[in-house]
Design a binder for these strands. Structure first.
Length: 511
RNA sequence: GCGGGCGUAGCUCAGGGGUAGAGCAUCACCUUGCCAAGGUGAGGGUCGUGAGUUCGAAUCUCAUCGCCCGCUCCA
């Protein structure tokens, strides 16, 4: 484990040193768990997006892509369940260091009082036997009445406080009830704090409740609200999918572990609309497809595993994670969920608009079921980076830092370099670079010794280095050096585009 | 929020009361010429911030801020 943590540290500093990922706002001491992608990170990230987009959208006739807004109508999040389900008042016990949901603590207290009533009822039953009228007893017994009044008053105070978002009121209620921590037994509480999953902001220039809107906590809803738009304008026939890449925001209580869990992150999602009753078939189909997609990258098959969820979210009837062996251990990389017709039905209800599909084969209308695939782009980035980063021990006892990125994902595909900074070699190198730069991202480097330059390219994952030497001037050939084998071949300049182009193309991944 | 760790040059760190150092990196020149770390020179730091103690604080005290790790939450 120690080894693994150190490994993550090395990756973080390597990422910073070479311009992949910087801590955000670093000159102001940074902002917790927020990161910026640098010049090479942006290239790598874009390449990952391309890999996903090409394989999901362009290679499936029945999947199209959209790009919806981050701001959405507030009702969207009521419909999706996000407003109600993720809005918890939390409180900490200072002695046990345990954190509780404040409303749950109060509920438990109420439950205790309810038990007292039940005890009294049980006593009555024992004493009077079959003649005992439970309802009448509850309505008249002073003990029961007193306890019931207590419950009513607590529930009333709690409801009022929660509805008014009066956190102090919730705190006072806990204190007044004398609730103690089950672990430490003390009543030494922190204040009650609200943890909202969603970030909110004000739309328009006048602040007020009416203009409060949220930053989307998932991109999926942008797809659901456009279901009909896309289906009709694209004349889509079920089964079909809508894909999207975009940012989402979640106010995680702890956002940690580099770019693995951030409050601002990017998702690559596809919602696949299917006939009711066929969802499990497609769920299995996409589980397999998505796993194959990951494995095609060649980061190591043993680094992936499938984890089926036992506890399901409120909208799902089946769910699985594709987990990756990150430096911190196996963690979720992609989720595949059978979301049923929950979302479309909810939107249909709240919007009052029919969100249905007329199936000409069945000759009937229905709300489609949905199978979702959702990859964390930043997690994908980390999986690629962490599994590619190596400190190799070479035969001569020296070490080299190398990023063995999949060729298609590498920020630069080729580095062009003159062996010497004179004799017309730099000019010739520029010529070669001009030949290649329209087809692939190139970098030019003439500083330092050849070996040093090779190492620099290894460290940023550039698959190929083309060296222009004196022989080049005579016969138009160059050496091309491979990042992984460190072997060189001499080839003619004319062949370069084909030779390199073939190897760095996405096609090799799709086959 | 709690607990722990850490803030000195771009990076890795040394220095623990007398006014800031090394290696690497950067830049220039020389040398070499296909797998990093040859030579010479140069630039670069109000030692996280603020207060206190002291003749004097990077160094001691207190506070504060930030980052990292762990715990609580997680679609």
């Amino acid at each position: 484990m120690q080894q693994k943590d150190d490994n993550l540290k090395d990756i973080i500093s390597h990422a910073k040193e070479y311009g992949f990922v910087f801590p955000s706002s670093e000159i102001y001491d940074g902002l917790a768990a927020t990161y910026d992608y640098g010049q090479l990170g942006a290239e790598l990230k874009n390449n990952i997006k391309s890999y996903w987009w090409k394989s999901m959208v362009q290679m499936h006739e029945n999947i199209v892509g959209i790009d919806s807004a981050i701001f959405m109508h507030p009702s969207v999040w009521k419909a999706s369940g996000h407003v109600d389900a993720f809005n918890d008042p939390l409180i900490d016990n200072k002695d046990s260091k345990k954190r509780y949901r404040a409303d749950v603590l109060i509920e438990e207290n109420i439950e205790k009082i309810r038990q007292k009533i039940n005890k009294d009822v049980a006593k009555g039953l024992k004493r009077f036997g079959d003649d005992f009228d439970v309802e009448q007893f509850k309505a008249t017994n002073p003990n029961v009445l007193r306890n019931q009044a207590k419950i009513d008053s607590i529930e009333d105070r709690m409801r009022t406080a929660l509805n008014n978002e009066d956190l102090e009121g919730v705190y006072n209620l806990i204190i007044d009830l004398g609730i103690a921590c089950p672990v430490s037994g003390t009543k030494n509480w922190t204040e009650v704090r609200q943890f909202n999953l969603m970030f909110s902001t004000e739309l328009g220039s006048v602040s007020g409740d009416a203009s409060k809107i949220y930053l989307r906590p998932e991109t999926a809803q942008g797809i659901f609200v456009n279901f009909l738009n896309v289906q009709k304008t694209g004349r889509m026939k079920i089964p079909f999918g809508i894909a999207q890449i975009g940012k989402a925001f979640r106010n995680e209580i702890v956002a940690r572990q580099f770019i693995f869990r951030m409050r601002e992150f990017e998702q690559m999602e596809m919602q696949f609309f299917v006939r009711p009753g066929e969802e499990m078939k497609w769920y299995e189909y996409w589980k397999e497809q998505r796993m194959n997609w990951h494995k095609a990258l060649g980061l190591g098959e043993k680094n992936y595993r499938l984890h089926d969820h036992i506890k399901l979210a409120h909208y799902a009837n089946a769910a699985a994670d594709i987990e990756f062996n990150f430096p911190m251990g196996f963690k979720e990389l992609e989720g595949i969920h059978s979301r049923t017709d929950f979302d479309l039905k909810q939107h249909q209800e709240l919007s009052g608009k029919k969100l249905q599909y007329f199936d000409t084969e069945l000759n009937e209308n229905y709300v489609p079921y949905v199978v979702e695939t959702s990859v964390g782009l930043d997690r994908m980035f980390l999986s690629v980076l962490s599994s590619s980063f190596k400190n190799e021990l070479l035969e001569d006892g020296k070490t080299r830092a190398v990023l063995s990125l999949p060729y298609a994902l590498a920020p630069y595909k080729v580095a062009v370099m003159p062996l010497l900074k004179r004799d017309g070699l730099p000019e010739k190198a520029r010529e070669v670079m001009n030949l290649l730069k329209f087809d692939m991202n190139c970098i030019y480097d003439e500083k330092d010794t050849a070996g040093k330059r090779y190492r620099r390219q290894d460290a940023i994952g550039t698959p190929f280095c083309v060296m222009i030497d004196h022989q080049t001037l005579e016969d138009e050939t160059v050496t091309i050096r491979n990042r992984d084998t460190m072997k060189q071949d001499r080839v003619s300049i004319q062949e370069l585009n084909t030779i390199i182009g073939e190897k760095v193309s996405f096609n090799s991944l799709f086959k």
